[in-house]
Amino acid sequence: MSAYLKIDHIDKSFERGGVVTDVLCDVTLTIDQGEFVSIIGHSGCGKSTLLNLIAGLTRVSAGAILLEGREVNDPGPERAVVFQNHSLLPWLSVYDNVNLAVSKVFAGRKSRAERHDWVMHNLDLVQMAHARDKRPAEISGGMKQRVGLARALSMEPKILLLDEPFGALDALTRAHLQDAVMDIHARLGNTMIMITHDVDEAVLLSDRIVMMTNGPAAHIGEILDVPIPRPRDRIALASDRSYLKCRQAVLKFLYERHRFVEAAE
């Protein structure tokens, strides 16, 4: 069986002024359709670089990334990205920000009325339809991230890439958005890859957790299966044995076996 997304022995190095820095070294990973995979690691371990490679925003130095058997070489709407700092265009309303994506991706495939319905449907999914005429500056950080999520979902991506989507939010807002993402994942069955540095978030949301070793030349240290049935409830999980076991495994990996060494920077 061929995997949905296949990351095949990729290397990534950056060259600047004749100095070559290896960021990723021999990363191999396969992801099935509908799977939720988190990538966790200390800062500077190249997890964002890995996401940018999957998004096609940067090119691999060696190896290949295949989505449904086709090589990923450039960015495209079938691999939508939810950026860490939402990246909404501040001069467009919430509606227009989503509509920018919809009218580009579905130009010629949907009529004007259908596109409008699709924009509103996606805003409804993230419970932001009430703020359709607001500018990004007029809504809260969590709401912005919801709109960013709606924009990405509206592209009907094969894979949704989340780059530390909740990193800039407070704990309560973050929990709300995690629930929203879990709900959307359950309803739509999207394949999702999320970068995070939050252990609880990774265990709560993921089917598998990919743990990266420290850079430079980072690689996948360990892949952990999270055998917790869905739907998951954060309150019930707090005392769940397998949840605690997974959590402990990730913590051990991050803080015992691959401690973050500041001096390496």
């Binding site: 495209g76 709407p77 950026f83 990246s87 265009l89 580009k104």
Partner: peptide, 26 residues
């Protein structure tokens, strides 16, 4: 123009004219 906006344009595959009209107003 912030790199994020350029990335948005690249993910959406905006062409040069669309980039000028949609992203450059920044």
């Amino acid at each position: 123009i912030p790199e994020d906006y350029r990335n948005v344009a690249r993910v959406l595959r905006l062409n040069q004219l669309e980039f000028f009209l949609r992203i450059m107003p920044s």
